[in-house]
Design a protein around this nucleic acid. Structure first.
Lengths: 128, 128
DNA sequence: CAGAATCCAAATCGATACTG
DNA sequence: CAGTATCGATTTGGATTCTG
């Protein structure tokens, strides 16, 4: 069915919002990662939701999923696409804005700085 | 209670995501508006949710609420704050990214271009 | 005119058990 | 190892009614 948005902001929000998506994009921005790597970096995410969010990012075209092996146990690697990397500037700016705001609001903390997202920018395109 | 985010992106998403918030910010980016103006521009939003989203934007400091009159009927005007206007660049970029993506994806349409958000940028600060 | 109060529906997220 | 399936909890948005 046809997706319709009032403006581009909503379309972009549809791609990057999701409880774990910013963190997933951040980790994948550093390098491609296996499922077990991601689970290790995000111990609190449940199996179901991890798969779910990855599938959504994939169907939105910002990450790709590569499967290695012909029978279990499989090796599955997720990596940013060019489209995904093109989100880099936006993610960095959103991160900086959020940090600035947090610095002015008491009772608001941000655990990781924007440098994580910065790495998305200088990352070569993966060979497919 | 203390709000804690993993990164600035989540903090920013917390401010701008909400079913009607991008549209509200877009309209308020043009000029301050009364409640009835906003209802007219967003006929599909319910009373409750309009108030709710405006209250959240207000408590996040991106809009202000001014009340005129000492007894009913009141005149309530909402306007972007400097902090709200500082979201302009991000909103424009998100809008452009969303539009570009939509132009490459069949079955995806975006009704309003990014020019709406562009107006946030060249808007003088309101007198308080 | 603007909004509070209820009650309800839908979307998201999570815990757990199971499969190739 | 990676993923599906189910069920339940939480969050979010909506319809309606009422008030100063």
């Amino acid at each position: 069915m046809k997706k319709s948005y009032n403006n581009g902001v909503e379309a972009t929000l549809g791609v990057i919002s999701g409880k774990w998506k910013p963190q997933l994009l951040c980790h994948l921005g550093k390098r491609p990662q296996r499922t077990c790597d991601l689970r290790q970096k995000l111990p609190a995410i449940s199996q179901k939701v991890l798969t779910q969010q990855l599938r959504e990012l994939e169907s939105d075209g910002v990450i790709v999923r590569h499967i290695y092996g012909d029978r279990a146990p499989f090796k599955v690697v997720y990596a940013l696409t060019d489209l995904g990397r093109s989100l880099g500037q936006i993610l960095v700016q959103m991160s900086v804005w959020g940090e600035q705001r947090a610095s002015e609001v008491p009772d608001m903390e941000i655990r990781n700085g924007h440098s994580g997202f910065n790495q998305i920018l200088n990352q070569p395109t993966e060979a497919l």
